[in-house]
Amino acid sequence: MEDSQIVDLYWARSESAVSETDRKYGRMLNSISFSLLSSAQDAEECVNDTYLAAWQSMPEERPTYLGAFLAKIVRRISVSRYRSEHSEKRGGAGKIIEELSECIPSRSTVSEEYENGRLAETLNSFLLGLDRKKRAIFVRRYFYSEPIEKISAELGIKTGSVKSILSRTRQSLREVLREEELL
């Protein structure tokens, strides 16, 4: 079923909206959540919470990219759960965050002056400046939290190449953040 048809179901308050969503995006949403939480049960609960959030957010919202819309929700819910229940564990979101720490310029201050909005804008601009392949690898790793092995297998690229691309992209982002004096 097309995204627009599923959204129509939400807007019509049809209960089949959730089942159609689950049929089309359930696996992807579970994958995101599991990557962050390393728990199938937690992931399943987060996905259900995502459906509920989607149900509540529509009809006010009418997402153009339903998959991305749902992915953002499940990511946010999963990270929140991770922080509340798994903060001491390594792996999952912790491992990804650790990788991302390489993007933080070493000379940055500890100030809390995170310039909201400006960072998201810079990230969008940075990602759009990458070629499609690098952008896809970076987003799949740091947005979808996909394991490197999965990215490697699905894109038909060697694991070492994926790691190499991610490393170089992190360094590029680090330079951009330093130039923009962000973080």
Binding site: Y65, V79, L100, L119, L128, V139, R140, Y142, F143, E154
Partner: peptide, 28 residues
């Protein structure tokens, strides 16, 4: 800060998120 960056990455443009997911299908 890394965690903050991670959170911000969760707010990137929907089109970029969608394209990254589609890239696999298209590229395959």
């Amino acid at each position: 800060k890394a965690e903050y960056l991670f959170d911000e990455l969760g707010l990137i443009d929907d089109a970029i998120v969608a394209q990254a997911a589609e890239y696999n299908k298209h590229s395959s």
